[in-house]
Design a protein around this nucleic acid. Structure first.
Lengths: 307, 307
DNA sequence: CCTTCTTGTGAGTTAAACTCACATATGTCT
DNA sequence: AGACATATGTGAGTTTAACTCACAAGAAGG
């Protein structure tokens, strides 16, 4: 045949590195995800840019920012890789009798609400195997195909890359252990400014908002704050009598009921960003995913009713 | 983060080899397309089957046939690779001021109908560059992204992987040069069985069908047939006085009008499979493709009116 | 000014990908 | 039945793409 096959697909290793870098906005983070050095990602992106004859990233100092064509191209590639990942997962699932759902859950939500209930789901759906990953990474930075259902706190339910639904909302109020309350008898918001205040990096600014809602100025001495990586650590510290934490109802309702925590202050309950489930919009309806979300929403409804 | 990136994408080099092999139904043809040896394709398919834990091809002797899961998987991968190829083409086109359309055309149609007219299209659309590939390879075997518009002869216009439209239909009748007719004065179909009959591999069986339509038995002596790879070679041989060919109107109308060919027999005009244009259904609407097809259909309409 | 984090790249290493050559299976033709 | 053609499978060796290592350089933050 008088015919010349074209190289219509770009170099695929380069494409994979590019897509991860685009999604993370960082060569270093992409390298972490792909288990290579940042130098490998840098070179692969360069290979793709040479092949395409166009810059895909602008170099801003030592940071990279996607160009407009880079953004459009990476969106298409991400979508295609997502399709391939989904097809590959289905292919591999054909060899197993159970369906594995990968859940990507905020650590505090996992520790204090989901894990105690997961056995109910497993019992009801023995043919679905759950794999739990805890993370607070932004969802749009997670590779397509790396999770089936995620839980994040978010305020906007706009249509977009993800379909979402509210699980429940939270109110935050200061709590401490009974022993701590007895040792520091306080009633007014202004009074706790001099006491240790426990805060999680993942909820930065929440104390400032609480004081503002109580009509108080912010705490000026940062030394009063004890910082923790995750909120469940801060909560555990409060239970252990290390100070006040802003406890989120309903997650701490059980602790209040059991007397592990008390809420001695008369200040306001601060509305917080609701917990939501999320799935990628592009993924086709999966019965196991639907079953899990249905169960999640029913558990949340039952939970709200029992408060 | 307490998080382990999964290897959600299969090995991409293996995937590329698998997709080509699936599309061709042959490791050897896939190797030709990818410019590697068949051994490389064989190994890559094995890598993918090991990764997936499932057979993607059944080995039937020394031939391979896709399994059911292999078929489903390859359809998804082909589609995704098509999306990537299209996005890559758009990416590269951004660096050029002209749009390149790749046409994949049957050789005879290209030689005798399209090429003489392409200058009209170029003149009307100077911002669209045409790249002509001649081939009679089945379209479903051609890699996604390797052509924008194809021309093939096909009888069914079923919805499927390709959108198609009729360009024109053909009638076939025996023709020869005037010199040959003078040297062999014949009038009835039966009389030409003893004369050299020119046939193209791509139109095998057409003489049998013509004799049947004329109420005659087939030519029993195969030695009477002179075979050519392509039909335009057979036609050129007829013009050169080497025998009778089954000439397709309207492609030979100009030759008849100019006296290069004559049709001395009184036998039937045999309806043949129509010429059709085809584009992949999955590809998004491209203005250049639409413009080309509109022009093609207008030229065909004008051509039919002028007969 | 020092530290931290990020990307870029020269030089060298690793291993994935490939070729070569031969074996084997099947179909076709004489 | 044997020769030939075409296809895939694979051992052994080669090639080179991909990668690591180590360092340089730019920017931000304390």
């Amino acid at each position: 045949m008088s015919e010349m096959p074209l190289q219509v697909l770009p170099p695929l290793t380069a494409l994979r590195s590019f897509e991860a870098a685009a999604r993370h906005g960082s060569f270093s983070r992409a390298a972490d995800e792909l288990c290579v050095t940042h130098g490998a990602v840098s070179r692969q992106v360069r290979v793709l840019e040479d092949w395409a004859g166009v810059a895909l990233f602008d170099r801003v100092g030592k940071r990279v920012v996607l160009t407009n064509v880079g953004r459009r191209f990476s969106d298409k590639v991400s979508s295609a890789f997502g399709d391939i990942a989904a097809a590959a997962r289905t292919l591999r699932a054909d060899t197993n009798s159970t369906r594995v759902l990968t859940l990507n859950i905020l650590p505090t939500f996992a520790m204090r609400w989901l894990l105690p209930r997961l056995s109910k789901f497993q019992f009801a759906h023995p043919q679905i195997e759950l794999r739990l990953v805890t993370s607070d990474q932004p969802l749009e930075r997670i590779a397509p195909g790396l999770f089936d259902v995620a839980v994040r706190r978010q305020s906007a339910l706009e249509p977009g890359e993800f379909r979402t639904g509210i699980i429940f909302t939270e109110d935050e109020l200061p709590v401490c252990s009974p022993a701590f309350a007895e040792a520091h008898p306080v009633r007014q918001a202004a009074e706790i400014k001099s006491l240790p205040l426990l805060v999680a990096d993942t909820r930065a600014g929440s104390w400032d908002r609480w004081f503002a809602a109580a009509g108080e100025s912010s705490v000026s001495n940062d030394a009063a704050f004890r910082r923790f990586d995750h909120f469940y650590l801060a909560l555990q510290a409060a239970i252990d009598g290390l100070g006040f934490a802003l406890g989120p109802l309903p997650l701490i309702e059980e602790d209040l009921a059991q007397g592990r925590l008390v809420a001695p202050l008369s200040g306001p309950k601060l509305s917080a960003v609701p917990y939501c489930w999320a799935v990628r919009s592009s993924e086709t309806e999966d019965p196991a995913v639907t079953q899990f979300i249905t169960w999640l929403e029913e558990e949340a409804l039952n939970f709200r009713r029992s408060r």
